[in-house]
């Protein structure tokens, strides 16, 4: 009999991050719904803020990781960095879609409309989403080594749109989207800020867990392809 399947590198890391993300998501959900004080101005609707903003920041972190992976891919030509870049952008895009949907729901509840085209934060964030969606169009249009190179360059160039979205709301003179975090600190009480920090940690852990799980699948597929080739040639 042959031995059992070999352990693929990263299984333990994926499991640890998965458990950590699950625990933090459960704790933050309990905190957001049962412990955090209700906002005097917006009431219960404000509870969307905790995950909406945390996911938005996590999506920008995902795009930053893809940018760094792109730089490392160009320097080393290692396909593993291409995997990290693609997986990060895929997760970042999932998070971005969640930000747009939850933001629209919050806008409908708070402003009475699903979308405001004149708001710089909303429009620039949508541009960021479209730029990163185009990344997958690029990937599917070229192959092999060129795909890795072009994808890395696009991930680096695409990251330029992130500060544009982040600072748009700060430099624009008229807007409806609120700014909670300013240079003078957070515009919220400490009890709300605490649960926001827990939610943010949960979303970052969720990103890392999804990234590890995605990379684990890619490594397994690659190992399987190599094994199949060896079997065919034997």
């Amino acid at each position: 009999m042959t031995d059992g399947p070999a352990r693929v590198p990263g299984q333990r890391a994926a499991a640890i991050w998965g458990v950590l993300a699950t625990v933090l998501v459960v704790v933050s959900s309990i905190g957001v719904f049962l412990v955090a004080p209700e906002d005097a101005d917006q009431g219960i609707i404000q509870r969307i803020f905790y995950f909406h903003v945390a996911i938005a920041i996590a999506s920008l972190v995902a795009f930053a990781v893809a940018c760094v992976a792109g730089i490392l891919q160009l320097r080393t030509r290692d396909e593993r960095w291409d995997d990290v870049g693609e997986a990060s952008i895929r997760i970042g895009l999932l998070f971005s879609v969640l930000v747009v949907i939850t933001g629209s729901i919050w806008a409908k509840a708070s402003w009475g409309t699903w979308w405001v085209w004149t708001d710089p934060r909303l429009v620039t964030y949508l541009i960021v989403v479209l730029i990163y969606a185009a990344y997958f169009v690029l990937r599917s249009s070229v192959e092999d080594d060129r795909r890795m190179r072009y994808s890395a360059i696009y991930a680096i160039a695409g990251f330029a749109s992130v500060p544009l979205s982040f600072y748009s709301v700060r430099v624009a003179e008229s807007f409806v989207h609120p700014v909670v975090f300013t240079s003078s600190g957070a515009n919220m009480p400490g009890s709300m800020l605490w649960w926001f920090v827990v939610s943010q940690a949960a979303m970052i852990c969720l990103f890392v867990a999804l990234l590890e799980l995605d990379l684990l699948g890619r490594r397994s597929e690659r190992a399987l392809r190599r094994l199949a080739m060896r079997l065919e040639s034997a």
């Binding site: 509870r47 969307i48 995950f51 999932l94 949907i101 509840a109």
Partner: peptide, 22 residues
């Protein structure tokens, strides 16, 4: 309440899409 249904909808979308991805 009117506000609660929006909060439930927002969190339902988050967990549904994340779960679907997992």
């Amino acid at each position: 309440s009117g506000g609660a249904q929006y909060v439930v909808a927002a969190y339902a979308v988050i967990w549904f899409l994340v779960l679907a991805y997992v």
